[in-house]
């Protein structure tokens, strides 16, 4: 009955109602399109994230990650679990916090830090084909015991930890001050991205 009445009502008002409804529909469509486009940006909502950041409680996100640190032989790595508390759910923020955890060093006494405690990141972003880019502030890399051994440890620990936290990331590129660099500290070549699968 209501449907019939509505149909009659729309039918009676003719062109004016039709134009108004079309305008509203067009506006809604445009708003939806804009919202969709915004969702395709770099910062994705936790629920829509391929790497699955979970919403722990309203207004705060936590994520459990593994941070890989060096063992005493300087060859192997062991993980420590850390809970990251995020103010917002972007992958970029989470990756930065994870690297900050690596820089804080291990809790266990038999493990060793692999990332300088002074480390700063000036940019971090993901591409749409499994790539991740981490740009370190050059000056923040300097005060550290660098040699081939420690440089390889930093690469291995960072790539492995980030790779474990973001399953969709397949390769990670290290930049220094936003540019591709020969190396982080004169040894390990960073001209090409590091394949996550090869640094486990």
């Amino acid at each position: 009955m209501n449907h019939a009445h509505s149909a009659a009502h729309y039918g009676m008002n003719g062109a004016a109602h039709s134009a108004a409804s079309r305008g509203a529909l067009l506006l809604a469509t445009l708003l939806c399109a804009l919202a969709l486009l915004a969702g395709c940006g770099r910062d994705r909502s936790p629920e829509g994230n391929a790497d699955g950041i979970s919403l722990a409680e309203r207004g705060q996100l936590t994520r459990s990650v593994l941070c890989y640190f060096a063992t005493a032989d300087g060859e192997t790595m062991e993980p420590e679990r850390r809970e990251l508390v995020l103010d917002e759910g972007s992958r970029e923020t989470m990756a930065k916090l994870l690297i900050a955890e690596l820089a804080r060093g291990p809790h266990r006494e038999d493990l060793y830090a692999t990332v300088p405690p002074t480390i700063e990141i000036d940019a971090l972003f993901f591409d749409d084909v499994g790539g991740m880019f981490v740009s370190f502030v050059g000056a923040s890399l300097l005060p550290w015991s660098w040699g081939s051994s420690s440089e390889f440890l930093m690469v291995r620990s960072t790539v492995r930890s980030l790779g474990a936290a973001f399953p969709s990331v397949r390769r990670i590129t290290f930049l220094v001050d936003g540019r591709r660099a020969d190396s982080l500290a004169g040894h390990v070549g960073t001209a090409h991205p590091f394949e996550v699968a090869e640094w486990r």
Partner: peptide, 8 residues
């Protein structure tokens, strides 16, 4: 030629 270093 290099000299190595580590925190270990």
């Amino acid at each position: 030629l290099h000299v190595n270093a580590s925190t270990i």
